[in-house]
Amino acid sequence: MATLHVLSHSPFSDSRLSSCLRLLGANDGLLLSGDAVYALQPGSAQLRALEMMPDSIGLFALDEDLTARGISAAQRAQVVDYPGFVELSCRFDKVNSWL
């Protein structure tokens, strides 16, 4: 069952991102929102970890959170807006928010 994991905490302040990366299934997706988009910071260990994920795992980032923080999405990530977020939550079987 493919799950969309939604992160919103900064990957520089806790271990949610690394725990999530360990748990991701082959066909799961990862949506970065809020401060979690800092994981796409160029040159960071977090971005390198994301780029090591297999291609079957979709990586997404919420566009307004990228814009608010002045971060441009790495090539590996697909930028989505709110209708795109809704579409993702339909595409995956369930949505797991890392509260």
Binding site: S8, K94, S97
Partner: peptide, 10 residues
Amino acid sequence: ADRLVCFGGP
């Protein structure tokens, strides 16, 4: 519902 979506945290 078909999907439960939770929001919280920052």
